[in-house]
């Protein structure tokens, strides 16, 4: 039932370990996925708080919202969306190859994902520095003279909170995926029975993508 991999010293260790309180490997994997979904549900609700801030203040200040969202750089936002969606593809492919036991391909796909994550953050950095330069900053730090509408500083409060929290999740996701990549390179023991680590890391990465899929139209387009 369980696959095994030979370790460096020649002994054969069963992979993955079945914890004694689980009836079978299937139940153990199911529990792992369910736990991940519960965690992702809390993450969704964490971001939902910011989405609701966005909704309420947009409801109160529609003109400021429209004017402010047009001041953002749509090209950079679109490029970032494409980068993140593509990184989601490579993360999904990493799980696919982990199931097939092609550890080298897992490492390559995760490496591509990380590369695109860095690209995303670099583009985000340029967007942020532009905003710091022209003064579209949250609350009392706002000094942009192009948009002088009540509510405009609130838009940028929501913008910075949402994108910064999302950026933090990008960094956490990169750390999680790096662990999978190192394991695929060092121990190379991912296979049909042992891919939970890649799968859950990839699920986290898809959540990051999912949040951006909603943030992008809300902040840049409408």
């Amino acid at each position: 039932m369980q696959s095994s991999a030979s370790t460096a010293d020649g002994t054969v260790a069963p992979v993955p370990r079945l914890a004694m309180h689980f009836a079978s490997l299937e139940v153990q994997n199911h529990a792992a996925r369910l736990g991940m979904w519960l965690f992702l549900a809390t993450e969704i609700l964490l971001f939902a708080g910011l989405f609701i801030c966005y909704g309420c203040y947009r409801f109160l200040f529609p003109e400021a919202w429209a004017a402010s969202s047009r001041s953002l750089d749509l090209t950079m936002g679109t490029v970032n969306t494409i980068v993140l969606i593509t990184s989601s593809l490579t993360a999904a492919l990493a799980v696919h190859y982990a199931k097939e036991g092609k550890n080298r391909m897992v490492a390559i796909q995760i490496f591509l994902t990380l590369l695109m994550a860095v690209g995303f953050l670099v583009i985000k950095y340029f967007e942020y520095s532009h905003k710091f330069h022209i003064g579209t900053l949250p609350g009392r730090y706002y000094f942009y003279e192009g948009i002088q509408l009540p509510g405009a500083p609130m838009y940028f409060t929501v913008y910075f909170c949402a994108t910064a929290l999302h950026g933090l999740h990008v960094i956490i996701g990169m750390v999680v995926l790096t662990f999978s990549m190192v394991r695929a390179l060092r121990r190379a023991d991912f296979g049909p029975n042992n891919y939970t680590m890649v799968e859950l890391g990839s699920m986290y990465w898809h959540l990051v993508d999912l949040v951006w899929i909603f943030l992008f139209p809300m902040l840049y387009l409408v």
């Binding site: 003064g135 900053l137 609350g139 009392r140 730090y141 706002y142 000094f143 509510g151 405009a152 609130m154």
Partner: peptide, 13 residues
């Protein structure tokens, strides 16, 4: 006002 410190935001302005 618009809720921001246009003339002298603490850092930016």
């Amino acid at each position: 006002d618009i809720g921001a410190n246009v003339k002298e935001g603490r850092f930016g302005g």
